[in-house]
Amino acid sequence: MTLLAVDDLKTWFTIEKSWKPGAADKVLKAVDGISFAIEEGEVLSVVGESGCGKSTVGRTLTKLEAATGGTASLSGKEFLSMSNAEFRPLRQQIQMIFQDPFASLNPRMTIEQTVSEPLKIHGLAQSNAEIRPLIADMLSKVGLDPRVMKRFPHEFSGGQRQRIAIARVMILSPSLIIADEPVSALDVSIQAQVLNLLKKLQSESGVAMLFISHDLGVVRLISDRVAVMYLGRIVEIGPKANIFNNPSHPYTQLLLDSIPQIDPAKRAPKVATLGEPASAANPPSGCAFHPRCPYASKLCSQAAPELQVLESKHQVACHHVGQFERQVAA
């Protein structure tokens, strides 16, 4: 069943007010008309480089940013148009994990206070006597000793703090978790532990997840489906196997080929240097990727390509899809 349905979502920011009456303000289209759905219990990853709008998608869906247009519904209930008061009960269903566990935990609250706060806010439990066993149980589920409850965040390492942030989210039994780069601030060995934990908790509880990341290796481990974003739009979306085995948008291919590889046999042949990501404040005409694309034609600079279906669930937004060969050794 579809849990989250997002249709033509737009989040624009005004970066310069016009002083002339009637003239248009300068806007940055961080998210510019994207549509996707997440099934119950499914993990959809959004990947892309900095400035592509992937974090804004997550922040808009938790109403931390106001949407400019489009709709989003959770179990059939549209929520972007709701007032904050109307949305509050739904917040229990949509929870967020942030990148930096040093900034997302209140330094003056003990772990017990931090993890119990959501329960109190949503009226799920009131007395500490009632709450304490729940917290103890949750802490041991995320791999922490329940006795740490009385301690403060500064006593914990980055990986442990991220576990606390996960406990704070999981204790509400949400139906959707939006995780914005939850492991990118962690060391490799700790990142692997937290990823394993997230994956285990996700499959045990059946919570759906929107996983925002720039790291394709992490994405391959955790997701069922993957959406690739470039300058505010989805350029390719599909099941994990299709995206990694048959990347069909030139940008997806570039991303995959750019990952430094340990195994020389897996290294892609040198890709030609093709400039840097354009800024969303000043996007190129037509297909936003065309100035960096080795296959771009005149059409690409004139018209923006729409997502077209390649195979069952695999969609690509490229004028020349299927007309070029990917140059890969493997």
């Binding site: 490799v188 994956k199 394709l216 391959r220």
Partner: peptide
């Protein structure tokens, strides 16, 4: 412990 984008791993 590095997640690899080129192979399927579960854990």
């Amino acid at each position: 412990s590095i997640p690899d984008a080129y192979s399927n791993v579960d854990e």
